[in-house]
């Protein structure tokens, strides 16, 4: 404990006789410039995400599973990781039923240690939900859980994310205050704003550095 005490003692000595600065966080600076009329939120998010090579489709709560099938077939993808216990997982499974030629469905139903190599080497695509999106920065927000664990959106080369249009917030600040994130965060919360990329060689952008090479966002619009 001595390192801890030494560090804290030094810091306290240096601050002796001073008072902590008051909190003067001016939220208008992080919200004001980043507000959009509702009808522009999707356009803003699309524009930013597409600028970094995200494929974005606008579809409906009813039609998206067919679109997923179409996108996978076009890419000659033969398997898809999904979460059967989630509502969207159930919907996907229904759409897959009786369709023999669709990619095989795989499930993340064991601790990672039991199938890490398969997840890393065999799974070609995954489909997950999101808890919302952010128009200002063109971001998806994911809170991985038992059904859709962290690596599900990271390890497969293609990640398909479902985003409800009604879940798109203007900016991150609004979203975290609306949903009261400060009261408790999951073990891992993620903002995802495109497929994995790097510009480490000559600043030339290359996609698919370590995570998904392709990010496909399906925006579900329902009245």
């Amino acid at each position: 404990m001595s390192a801890r005490n030494n560090i804290l003692t030094k810091l306290r000595t240096s601050l002796a006789g001073t008072t902590p600065r008051p909190d003067e966080f001016d939220e208008s600076l992080v919200t004001g410039p980043w507000r959009y009329p509702p009808e522009q939120r999707i356009a803003r998010l699309r524009e930013l995400m597409e600028a970094v090579h995200t494929e974005v489709h606008q579809t409906t709560e009813g039609d998206w599973p067919e679109l997923v099938a179409e996108l996978l077939v076009k890419r000659e993808i033969t398997n898809l990781l999904y979460a059967p216990a989630t509502p969207h997982g159930k919907q996907l499974a229904r759409a897959w039923k009786d369709e023999a030629d669709r990619p095989a469905l795989r499930v993340y139903d064991r601790p990672i240690e039991e199938w890490k190599a398969q997840l890393f080497n065999e799974v070609q695509a995954s489909v997950t939900g999101t808890i919302g999106g952010i128009a200002a920065t063109g971001s998806l927000v994911l809170w991985p859980d038992r059904h859709e664990p962290r690596l599900m959106s990271l390890a497969p080369p293609v990640h398909i994310a479902l985003l409800k249009a009604s879940g798109i917030h203007d900016n991150w600040y609004d979203m975290m205050t609306d949903q009261n994130w400060a009261a408790g965060l999951p073990t891992n919360a993620l903002l995802v704003s495109g497929p994995s990329k790097t510009a480490d060689i000559e600043q030339v952008l290359a996609y698919g550095a370590h995570g998904p090479k392709e990010l496909i966002v399906l925006i579900l619009e329902d009245v």
């Binding site: 006789g17 001073t18 008072t19 008051p22 003067e24 001016d26």
Partner: peptide, 16 residues
């Protein structure tokens, strides 16, 4: 931003 605050101590943390 800091009009409300005045800490004259020479070792007070500085703001721009």
């Amino acid at each position: 931003m800091s009009e409300l605050f005045y800490d004259a101590a020479p070792n007070a943390t500085r703001v721009a």
